[in-house]
Design a protein around this nucleic acid. Structure first.
Lengths: 335, 335
DNA sequence: CTCGGGCTTGCAATCGATTACGTGACCCGG
DNA sequence: CCGGGTCACGTAATCGATTGCAAGCCCGAG
């Protein structure tokens, strides 16, 4: 910057004023400065600027598992929204691991991100607790943490699960199993609770063996589906609490040579573009991922601005296809 | 930091030494400092540190289209590798748009990332050209830019395409079409060239109408496949140059009520976990995405360290499945 | 007792910007 | 011709760390 100033024969203060479009610089001087900038290929040092103005124009996003299409779509939506608001995004992948999550939260806060979006991977987090006490702007996405009071942006898994179960009941299923998420994940718990509740209200029995816990990974979908098929009385329908476990479950079903939906019905949380290309197309609950991401960013910006922001919940959509019986005309088509 | 120093009754210099694990601090003092850090919930300011030591421990990644599963997998691999080496990752999505790409490169360099990974989206880039002249450490991934001499890490699309075409020829196909990428993308061109060449060597005619240009997006796969089916003599086999276009093409094939592979065969660049769950499972060329990402990072680190690094090319693998005829025993399973 | 050397610690410059405040030039009305 | 106001620009402090240099201390050898 000093070089630019020297070449343009002004002070660094003036260079700064030109580069930040501040008034109080003569037109001639401005041109001279811009010329010098151009000639020298000068690059303002955003690090120094951040130090001085105490703002980095950067947001942080810590997600549970970047392998999971739901999270990658979320990351994309967040990146879009952030960039639209002039913010860069630093991405952290916790890999559903407590230590990695803590480390990332620390690192991002040390980097002085202006705000932090977190999909909490584990039930407890000292780092987040401390940060919240220090009034760091944090918003939870998709999941929440008990006892930590920050805005949450997520979809209504309870209503969605209820709708899906009723859909299955309506198709005549009475032996319905659920491959749920880990106990620590609030989303997993919520979906399980809604599942039990809806069956209970309908007076449909629910054997303990029909409630399985996976870890949101493909392998656990395989494991749990295998266990279900080994039961004396296997379920007639299975719900997977996320798309990776659905993928694993599907593999096992195919491996056993079973037919969908005649031998067993399958439905999944999280829709995917290729679900409708399967044979039969897979029934799924579509989360409004893009909206969640965009809303998470605006909520975070609001929190940064006003020091308070409301939690928000978005509705899911049931994409009823043929994988649960009674071929229905599916209503959706691409986008 | 001053607060910590005051509380521990030392100078900020000593606090710094303790926090960076430098020798020359007495044990008692060290403990006092750590205690003060703990009590105050002190967070070192990485921005200030970066300004002083002129290194941010951050890498930048600008990818073509975050919507594309290939790139998200790449991003994941890069994030993994970066984090393993102690670096954070700032992610930029150029959306296959020249202006956005330029903007991101500028922003990331202004942020003083220690190194930059770019999947060049367009044929020309002033920002990258300038940066390279200024000796910014940049590595290209997957694609390259003519006239700009930086290390490139990518897979061997030429050999892969050759193998795929020969596979199709071996299955008896003689009317083979290609839905390629845009002319600006080096990968698109390379795949097209290998396609023509292999057919030429085999003496198989290639109508101009069989060479279509998409833009790597799903919609263009639909468009081009529709055009191919409308030909007087439609191809017996179609290759899509990426998985999104394959998805679009598949939609159209299904929409026309055609059967794979009897009516038309389909193969794709970029494998996906769900390809083998389709009916019939889709033949694809699997790129070593994880390896590309990891190698890109190590290449970049090498470049940062030694100011020079070689380009590297990795081999693809043909996943021959049933979508091109003659059910073969596929050799792969999972990852 | 003195001196040198090793260890611990503090002082102060530095990284590259932003910005409050001050200063001089110029204009204009009275 | 003078006072005040406006405008353009420079001076220097500041953000929060790191680090070269020097100073103080303690200890043992001579």
């Amino acid at each position: 910057m000093a070089d630019v100033a020297a070449l343009a024969d002004v002070s660094t203060a003036t260079v700064s004023r030109v580069l930040t479009n501040r008034p109080g610089v003569g037109d001639a001087t401005r041109q001279r400065v811009l010329g010098a900038v151009e000639r020298l290929g000068y690059r303002p040092n955003a690090v120094a600027r951040s130090l001085r103005v105490d703002t980095t124009h950067t947001l942080g996003l810590v997600i549970g598992d970047i392998e999971n299409p739901f999270f990658t779509e979320l990351a994309r939506a967040v990146e879009d929204a952030a960039s639209a608001h002039g913010y860069s995004l630093i991405l952290g992948n916790a890999d559903e691991d407590a230590a990695r999550q803590e480390r990332y939260v620390e690192v991002l806060l040390n980097r002085r991100v202006d705000g932090l979006l977190v999909v909490p991977a584990v039930a407890q987090s000292d780092a987040i607790g401390l940060a919240v006490r220090q009034h760091a702007p944090i918003v939870f996405v998709d999941r929440e943490l008990p006892g930590i009071d920050v805005p949450v942006v997520r979809s209504d898994g309870r209503a969605a699960m209820r709708e899906l179960v009723q859909h299955l009941l309506g198709l005549g299923h009475r032996r319905i199993a659920l491959i749920s998420g880990p106990e620590q994940a609030s989303t997993g718990m919520e979906r399980l609770a809604a599942f039990r509740e809806t069956l209970g209200v309908a007076g449909v029995p629910l054997p303990v063996a029909y409630m399985r816990h996976g870890d949101f990974q493909e392998a656990s979908g395989e494991t749990e589906m295998t266990a279900l098929l080994a039961l004396a009385e296997p379920p007639s329908a299975v719900i997977a609490a996320d798309n990776l476990m659905a993928l694993g479950a599907l593999r096992v079903i195919r491996g056993h040579g079973l037919r969908i939906p005649d031998d067993i019905a399958l439905a999944s949380f999280d829709d995917s573009p290729w679900f409708e290309l399967l044979d039969p197309p897979l029934t799924a609950i579509a989360q409004p991922t893009k909206e969640i991401g965009a809303l998470a960013v605006t909520t975070l910006l609001e929190l940064m601005d006003r020091h308070t922001a409301p939690s928000r919940m978005l509705a899911c959509r049931l994409m009823a296809r043929a994988s649960c019986g009674e071929q229905r005309r599916s209503t959706e088509r691409g986008k």
